[in-house]
Structures are given as structure tokens and as C-alpha cells.
């Protein structure tokens, strides 16, 4: 596998999709590119074409306590070295297009993200819960509950 270079990947994405790529260097260990939710599917198509071998490692989701109104979603890939795509969504109406038509292995990860953080994946028939029990009624466990005033 040839040596991975994040700038090469950015150039590929910008040439093929005309989206502007922003590099986020907060993560120690993986290069990260910040994109918008509607750019997700075209960028993933470019990624799968650019590398001889590439697989999706995980879909990591988190909510920062200093920014409780938004959720950050990372699509972590591995292709000789690791890199990620980063997206920011509003916590109230988090919607993302599903990628299981191009990467069938993302099914389990999307189901877990949906039940743990309340993200809605469009373009799938159904998103049944993966790990939580059938009678779970307390909402997404990882989202901080809003305090009731008064």
C-alpha cells in the first residue's frame, strides 16, 4: 500500500466533487476531514475509489459537554493508516444519509448510533435497535437530559 497523505486525499475529493475540504487536526493518531452531511455519500464514493484497500473501522458519535446543542459524528476508516470524516449535527433533529448501499458493514454501526444518540438515518427501511433491550423507554442514553425549569 502506498504511503497515505491527507493532502492527496483532499485534492482527490476537491477535484472529483468540487467540495471544499477542511482538515481538522484535533485527533492525535488519525487525520480528519470536516465535511457537511449532504456531502457524505459523494465523498465516501471518492474514498472507496481512491484506495486499493479501505475499510470502515467504526462510526464514533459524541456530544461535547461544552457544546450540548450539537453532536459530532466520525466515520473512521483504515487504509494502511487511519483517517476519519467528521460531521456536526444539531442534537434535536440529527439526520444523516445511510451508507449501507455502498458499505453494507456500516449496518451495525448505524443501528448503534441511532439507538444511543437518537440519530435518524434516511434511506434505510428500518433501523432496529442493536444492543438496548426491547422495553427500553428512557431515550438515547448518551444524550444529556435537559433540566426541567420551574
Amino acid at each position: 500500500m502506498k504511503k497515505f497523505n491527507i493532502l492527496d486525499l483532499c485534492i482527490e475529493i476537491e477535484t472529483k466533487t468540487s467540495f471544499h475540504c477542511e482538515v481538522y487536526d484535533g485527533i492525535h493518531g488519525d487525520h480528519t476531514i470536516l465535511i457537511k452531511p449532504n456531502q457524505l455519500k459523494p465523498v465516501i464514493d471518492v474514498i472507496l475509489e481512491s484506495f486499493e484497500y479501505c475499510h470502515l473501522s467504526a462510526i464514533t458519535v459524541q456530544q461535547r459537554n461544552d457544546q450540548p446543542d450539537e453532536i459530532e459524528v466520525f466515520y473512521n476508516f483504515w487504509s494502511g493508516s487511519g483517517f476519519s470524516l467528521m460531521l456536526k449535527l444539531p442534537v434535536e433533529s440529527a439526520k444523516l444519509p445511510s451508507i449501507i448501499s455502498t458499505i453494507p458493514g456500516a449496518d451495525f454501526y448505524e443501528r448503534e448510533a441511532a439507538e444511543m444518540f437518537g440519530i435518524e438515518f434516511t434511506g434505510r427501511n428500518e433501523t432496529p435497535p442493536l444492543l438496548l433491550p426491547d422495553d427500553w423507554d428512557q431515550g438515547p442514553p448518551f444524550i444529556a437530559k435537559k433540566e426541567k425549569n420551574g
Binding site: G26, I27, H28, G29, T60, N65, D66, F74, W78
Partner: peptide, 22 residues
């Protein structure tokens, strides 16, 4: 504060850890 990603080779394959500290 910081974020880090570590990958290790478990007996069954690639183990992926993401850790964020505040």
C-alpha cells in the same frame, strides 16, 4: 484535554479505541 485514536491487533482482529479527555 485532547482526543486520541489507538488501534491494536486483538486475537480476533482490529481493536479500535477513541478516547476524549476534557
Amino acid at each position: 484535554e485532547g482526543e486520541v485514536i489507538i488501534r491494536a491487533e486483538a486475537p480476533r482482529g482490529e481493536l479500535f479505541y477513541y478516547l476524549r479527555s476534557d
